[in-house]
Design a protein around this nucleic acid. Structure first.
Lengths: 140, 140
DNA sequence: TATTGTTATACTCTATAACTATA
DNA sequence: TATAGTTATAGAGTATAACAATA
């Protein structure tokens, strides 16, 4: 049997993510009416998970530079999917949240992602899926 | 406790990969002398894992379009890190493998990745890491 | 001084389609 | 016809640095 190194995790994670993107792209027409793209989709899903958060917190959660947040958020704001509001307690901070339309788009997106992930997870059991999520949530 | 959906896996996987890239980038000067970039790095690691394979197989393993393979491989070939050879059994096929210099570069890269992944995996035990790899290898 | 967010720039990654050559 | 690989193009993602405003 082939020796597996921890570095193989990088290959496996990358492959998993790429499989999700690839799977989604096959059915993009079904839900990506607003053509938010992969990055926009991740941002919307992060917002659905986090609720109203500052751009800085988004940048931290998505492990992407704050300058990218500005652009992505501006794009989604232009499409009416997210809302930006100045923080009342700190004049520097901009809070971001989903609009009603954004909620609807992310709902369709989540459904599509659930489909794709469901297919990917077919080789392992529901219990193992729970275990996987539990392990990952402790890591990230 | 917050309900977790399977779709959260997408966020967690993305975050893990981004953390690897971010961690590597911090120490890029230490090993990325050839400036292969993230894509080139993944390709080199895939080759280290797979040995000599066709471009088509690489495209399949990395879940990326074949046209991207051409470009990435040409870039790495120009840097002397990979070698292309025509298949003897099928005139259409190009086999790709690491050069001696490529082996050396990937070795440094793997060391850096192991460092970063080691840090990321700190919250879980060695046994759990094994379990995680075992689950993932069954999925991808 | 430090932090939040913006802007500008250059570079890499990606999807798509049209193409050549071999099977 | 089908498959392996190439080329060209446009668009999306990313890192970096310089900047303004607030703390």
């Amino acid at each position: 049997m082939k020796k597996t190194r921890d570095t193989d995790l990088a290959l496996m994670f990358d492959r998993f993510m790429r499989s999700i993107h690839f799977g989604l792209q096959q059915k993009a027409g079904d839900f990506d009416r607003k053509s938010v793209g992969p990055g926009g989709g991740m941002l919307l899903m992060t917002l659905a998970d986090a609720g109203q958060v500052s751009q800085n917190e988004l940048s931290r959660r998505m492990v992407r530079d704050k300058s990218q947040m500005t652009r992505m958020i501006q794009g989604l704001e232009g499409k009416g999917l997210v809302r930006r509001e100045n923080s009342t307690s700190d004049g520097r901070v901009v809070m971001v949240s989903l609009t009603a339309e954004g909620e609807q788009v992310v709902e369709e997106l989540l459904e599509a992602v659930a489909d794709v992930i469901g297919d990917l997870l077919a080789p392992i059991s529901a219990n193992e899926t729970q275990l996987l999520k539990q392990l990952l949530s402790r890591i990230v």
